[in-house]
Design a protein around this nucleic acid. Structure first.
Lengths: 206, 206
DNA sequence: ACCATTCTAAAACGTCTATTCTAATTGGCA
DNA sequence: TGCCAATTAGAATAGACGTTTTAGAATGGT
């Protein structure tokens, strides 16, 4: 190294997350990222090949942090704790939570996909997460993991809690206490494994 | 009228929905919309003021159709039926379902909001939907609708079913039968009104 | 003190997009 | 038939954005 860098990868990634969290993916233009860091746009290209490389790096970083918080609980066979762990993680990583949980990768990368190394890293992360789900599901039944059971687990532990949190993440500010209650009740009322060989208990109407 | 129009508002709206449903919001450029209809780009501007006017009109149309399918059931106090009604609606309106349920208005309109008349129409639609939810919730308890109860109803009837359907809507193709089972079980296991004056039933772990 | 290297800095380029403009065409109606 | 507003038609414009280029400044070993 011959010249000390004023701006780090970290700086650009953090700025990107903040911009997307605040104004959606379209707000994270290269010029906006640079402006936020206080750098000229060209400097970003000394660290990243392209805009999708910046976005991809930010996504992988946020996703890895999220998985780190949930996967151990899943592997220990604690789906309810895993679902509830999304709350403290979101509170401690507000920016990351808004960035990760309020955007779909498909909309974030729809124009140009990230470069190969980042795509591969993302695949690894997704496999790790998927594996944790499978471990959790297979721990609660026999060895075979049926599609329905996996879909059900992902819903109960991931998609449903996020759906509960979404309005409050969007609005900003604190997550209300009843969000936690809703997640807990959801897990109390709906079993992780699909009821086999009998129809769902019919709901009592009126 | 002095010259018969070859292209209708309808044509452009339908093309816009199809493009967004197939390739995300960014795929619906004015040129892509025009190409799909077989018209020159300029012709769109004889019917719509701007791109956001086209998107807004498409959104309002899809949303109105969706609300029309659900609101009556909500007002009749049938939350479970309302949630399940999303399935046939999505099957009968596959294009609209992908357009409406797979995109957030905030990302669709983040660059430039639709013109005032469309915004007002959207507000009316949202109020109608909100009113139906409130009617449904207040029907199941006393007159006062608490924030928590409203959030819970919107989750059970709207967000959770959509979260269940999302992977299958994205992938395309038929919605699996277990999606219906999951929604039914969700409503069987989790009551519409929050349990008052006592904590949520604790889940049995391990 | 020099020099290769790494970085900042800012302007410039090329592409893509929404939008506008100008001209040609249509078809009911006086 | 000949007018005329509505419409088609497609090129032209202007701006935004990602990316590249060029120039210069800083650094640490030799």
């Amino acid at each position: 190294m011959v010249r000390t860098a004023r701006f780090s990868e970290e700086d650009f990634i953090e700025a990107t997350m903040a911009l997307v969290a605040e104004g959606g993916p379209a707000a994270a233009t290269m010029q906006a990222i640079a402006r936020r860091v206080g750098a000229p746009t060209g400097s970003i290209y000394h660290r990243f090949d392209s805009r999708s490389a910046v976005l991809g790096a930010a996504w992988n970083r946020a996703y890895a942090s999220f998985i780190k918080a949930l996967a151990p609980l899943l592997r220990k066979g604690r789906p309810r704790e895993a679902a509830l762990a999304i709350l403290p993680w979101s509170r401690e990583n507000e920016r990351r939570a808004r960035f990760l949980l309020l955007n779909e990768p498909v909309t974030l990368f729809e124009d140009t996909p990230p470069p190969a190394p980042l795509r591969e890293e993302l695949e690894r992360l997704e496999e790790e997460f998927d594996g944790a789900f499978r471990a959790c599901v297979s721990g609660c039944g026999d060895g075979v993991v049926r599609d329905e059971d996996l879909a059900r687990a992902k819903f109960l532990i991931f998609d449903a809690p996020i759906a509960i949190l979404r309005p409050h993440l969007m609005r900003g500010g604190a997550l209300p206490p009843f969000a936690e209650r809703m997640i807990a009740e959801l897990h109390a009322g709906m079993p992780l494994a699909a009821t086999r060989n009998r129809a769902a208990r019919p709901a009592v109407v009126a």
